[in-house]
Design a protein around this nucleic acid. Structure first.
Lengths: 346, 346
DNA sequence: TAGATTCGTGCAATCGATTACATGAAAGTT
DNA sequence: AACTTTCATGTAATCGATTGCACGAATCTA
């Protein structure tokens, strides 16, 4: 039906060759001003659109980038993707979304797949289960820019965009200390993942800086869900010297903690303060809104995209950049009866 | 560096022509069994990967589909995309994500863009502001399958996947009636959008079926945010005959309503019941969890993908399918003190 | 004015895969 | 034995855009 207009059609219409048309459209300086404008005008008139595949075939560049995340329908990741899309779309790139379901196998397969699709770059957050780095090496070998965000692996030649999880853990903990808490527990998730390791270390450093002894019994390794938070509190409140606050590396666990504390009759925040991590949307909507650490995911996505673009500008150079965004503590009711009133007007 | 292996390389290695290799790899029946297996084996050995661009250029098919939504970092949309991706990835399609920011201009531009990129199909949810349908007609003219989900426009030849918003409005309202409410208000958003119109009509029908007179003063047109919900309650509670329940077409407005009610000292759900719509994640996490209507967005995404695949299977046929998923009422505390206890264990 | 530059354009190969048509060998038919 | 089929493979065009090289005309140089 709809015949696509090609440069040959334009050439025929103007009685010149396709080569001239191509050059005119690409602002090749060897073309006379007269024919250039003529070509450009007729191109517009004929509704010419460059065929991306022909271009891709010739150049090897697709103008697509692959974005790989565990799940797209997690606020944190979808916000990152939003940032990436908003940064890359105006530059003519299309964003291809893939999910790994936290499964290394699928991750490897997906990466290989994107490579076959000759994406111009891959931006990704590594699956929890990933140990093997072979598939990333393949990406580098194929000269495709690779940018990790949030969940990274240290690989030579790979740029990374993270938030400063250490600082995040530090400010969260310091805030609890400032609020007068002295027996601060910490719920972590998986210390094999850098993000949790650094949050934990920030926690320890804050304690240390304020002369509060670190207690192993206050550290609970949980999953990142509500149930885990409840269990953590159950365990913690049985201790002889039960804590008076918890910094949870997960908002969901923080929520579970609050629910369990309420069930036990412990008043939050007066008797027990809670701080989460991630600024999941629900934390602000709760009646007892939850203090948490914001990771500015949209900004993180934009930054990852910018790092990629920078690499594309210098295809000959091997750029390796490490960007660390600053986390922001968002104080809400779960940790501060004082500010509770200020925070009421959402 | 990394030289890509082509069928010519394989051909050279086996001292045959590329045509034979191509045919062997495509299971063309004219190729002898011997050479076929030989070719396939060496292809594997040489790590051959088909060049998607060459294929795309020749066939005009990209194996990409475009997905267009207002914002990707909205739980509803990101969940739909998750469904789409999970359904399409195994079939070899890549999903290209685009956002319209609820802006018709950007929507038109995006659609045009996807068309240029020769996607094999476009799945989208229409922007709120879209009136003009020209860009959709263009899609149809180019013979690209178009599937609308959730926010649709009635266009001949376009398949749609929606939930039965009428039924959603109906069961939400009926639930309130069953709970003993008799003065049920309704907060809607934009009656120009079908989804809200149908929810409203379901509401009216439910009232009607149960002999409850419809009152214009109980209908509030708001935006879909917390603030809007608060304002709605302020207005409603000033009425001489104030309502005892509200069915909000937006979860956010429902939340705002609850907050305002609490501020006014009205007990939810005992004195006033609230039902929202969409099953946003926060509705279940609230201390006073919110009754809402679930739209099974992942399922909706999968369905949209399946409708697309069906169309691809029959390229000659013009398939126009209308799928309507059933919404599900999720009863939580905000409307039912009885079930409140059952719902405690999340 | 002859020869050297410069300029604008055309020619043709290339990117990698597919496919209608041609070809030649083997097998079958009478 | 001569002829027709069948079968497997090769030849070459095609998809659309890019680009090094060639070429003729116009302009410049001495």
């Amino acid at each position: 039906m709809k015949e696509k207009v090609t440069i040959y059609d334009i050439a025929k219409a103007l009685n010149i060759t396709a080569a001239t048309v191509s050059r005119a459209l690409n602002n090749n300086p060897k073309i006379s001003e007269a024919t250039r404008t003529l070509v450009i005008e007729t191109a517009k008139k004929m509704n010419y659109e460059q065929n991306r595949f022909a271009l891709a075939l010739k150049s090897g560049k697709s103008n697509n980038v692959g974005v790989v995340v565990p799940f797209i329908n997690r606020n944190f990741f979808s916000s990152i993707i939003r940032g990436i899309e908003e940064e890359l779309y105006p530059k003519g790139y299309h964003v291809i979304i893939c999910q790994t379901h936290e499964d290394t196998k699928k991750e490897e397969e997906t990466v290989q797949n994107l490579l076959n699709a000759q994406v111009d770059g891959i931006l990704m957050s590594v699956s929890k289960t990933t140990q093997q780095l072979r598939h990333f090496k393949k990406v580098l070998k194929s000269n495709t820019p690779l940018v990790f965000f949030d969940r990274i692996k240290e690989i030579d030649g790979v740029s990374t965009v993270t938030i400063d999880d250490f600082q995040g853990g530090y400010i969260a903990t310091k805030h609890l200390i400032d609020m007068g808490c002295t027996r601060i527990a910490h719920a972590t998730v998986d210390l094999a993942l850098d993000i949790y390791k650094y949050r934990f270390e920030g926690y320890k450093e804050a304690l240390n800086d304020h002369g509060i002894p670190f207690k192993e019994e206050y550290i609970i390794k949980t999953k990142s869900d509500i149930d885990a938070g409840e269990k953590a509190i159950k365990k913690l409140m049985k201790l002889k010297n039960a804590p008076d606050a918890i910094f949870s590396a997960s908002d969901f666990a923080a929520l579970g903690a609050i629910q369990e504390l309420t069930k036990l009759g412990v008043k939050v925040p007066n008797e027990f303060a809670v701080v989460g991590f991630s600024n999941e949307p629900f934390t602000q909507f709760m009646e007892l809104s939850i203090t948490t650490v914001d990771q500015s995911p949209v900004e993180m996505g934009k930054m990852a995209a910018r790092v990629f673009l920078e690499q594309m500008k210098e295809p000959t150079l091997k750029i390796m950049k490490k960007v660390e965004l600053s986390p922001e503590l968002i104080v809400r009711k779960s940790s501060s009866s004082l500010t509770a009133k200020q925070q009421t007007n959402i």
